[in-house]
Amino acid sequence: MSVTPPAAHPSVRPAPAFRGRIGRDARSGHYAVPRRYRLHLSPADPDGLRIAVTHGLLGLDRACPVTFLPAVPDCPDGGHAALRPLYDASAHRYTGPALGPVLSDDWSGRIVSTHGPDIARDLARRFAGGRVTLYPCGAESELEAVERMCAQGIEEAAQRAGAAGVGEVERTAALDTLLATLGVLEQGLGVHKYLIGDQITAADVELWVTLVQLDTVHRTHLDAAAVQRIADHPALWSYARRLAAHPAFGTHLDLDGIHRRHRARCQGLEAAGAAVQILDWATHSTPATGTRPQVNRP
């Protein structure tokens, strides 16, 4: 489908503490070597889930091991205790929270990047080996457009529509923005199987994770009528269901972790929409008591 970029706005993602990149060869410092790097992430976090799905699509279990973090950070500042040694080794007197996701360098014991989109791109561009093309050449503007639609047209709009203390006018405007964005996606996915081209790309990973958050997190703060209108996009939710059945997507769904992370962070009020589930994500998710495949721990 063709995606038209909306007007640019500042990103909702926080500024990363580290933003190194993996280059083409040894001259770049950080270069692609199998098992040199390690991912530290929680699939309960949207950025962590995006990277986990990307990692699964690329088949990088052996080339880049993964250490899974708890769904709810265990430090008072919102960071992960397991990541503190990496942060301390990477920045002198670092005082911020030790947040995931993290791409670390096992050779140096330091952090390469904490910027989720960069990590996903570097995995795809430096380790894919031609197996999957998640970032097609010439599709950069379409990929950026999907990222903005997800961040602003869905994520931000859904948050405003369900925020406590928001006036009715602002709430209605936010819901209109959300429904208009879903309508554009519905129209395209009613004709095309994927967002860009005829195969899964990073745009599909971005949208799928956003839809997971919409149905498992933001829905709980919306009224039932709003959720029914959101659900009334059959092509879009059929697409989400189809991707959930793909092993690289559904096996990383930690529904219990998503709910626990939401409860730990959210101060909003539950609304009637909490009882109107759109998709049965549990059909494809990994049980909280189960073990994740190919997990590598330090």
Rank of each mutant, 00 (worst) to 15 (best):
M1D: 13
A7H: 00
A7F: 00
P16Y: 07
A17T: 13
A17H: 10
F18S: 09
R19E: 14
R19A: 15
G20R: 02
R21W: 05
G23Q: 10
A32E: 03
V33Q: 14
R35L: 06
P43K: 06
P43G: 01
A44P: 04
A44D: 00
D47Y: 11
V53L: 11
G56A: 11
G59P: 11
D61L: 07
F68Y: 15
L69I: 09
L69Y: 09
V72Y: 06
D74R: 05
D77S: 01
A81W: 00
L83V: 04
Y87S: 07
R93D: 14
R93M: 07
Y94H: 14
G96T: 00
P97Y: 06
L99G: 01
L99A: 13
G100S: 11
G100R: 03
P101N: 04
D106A: 15
S108H: 09
R110E: 08
R110C: 11
I111H: 06
V112K: 02
T114P: 00
G116E: 04
P117L: 02
R121P: 05
R121E: 15
L123H: 07
L123P: 06
L123I: 07
P136D: 02
G138I: 00
G138R: 02
A139D: 09
E142F: 01
L143S: 02
E144S: 08
E144F: 01
A145Y: 04
V146D: 06
M149H: 13
A151N: 08
I154S: 01
E155Y: 10
A158S: 15
R160T: 14
A161F: 04
A163Y: 06
E168M: 06
E168A: 11
V169K: 12
R171P: 03
L175E: 04
T177L: 10
A180M: 07
A180K: 10
L182M: 13
L182A: 02
G183K: 03
V184W: 05
G188Q: 15
V191E: 13
Y194I: 01
L195H: 04
Q199K: 10
D204S: 01
V205I: 12
E206A: 11
E206H: 09
E206R: 12
T210Y: 04
T210H: 03
L211M: 02
L211I: 03
V217E: 06
L222H: 12
A225G: 01
A226W: 05
A231M: 03
L236M: 07
W237S: 04
Y239V: 00
A240K: 08
A240E: 07
R241C: 09
R242H: 05
F249W: 07
G250Y: 09
H252C: 09
G257P: 09
H262L: 13
A264I: 10
C266N: 14
Q267S: 14
E270P: 11
E270H: 12
A271I: 04
A272F: 05
V276C: 15
Q277A: 15
D280Q: 11
T283H: 14
S285M: 03
T286N: 14
P287N: 12
P293Q: 14
Q294E: 15
Q294V: 11
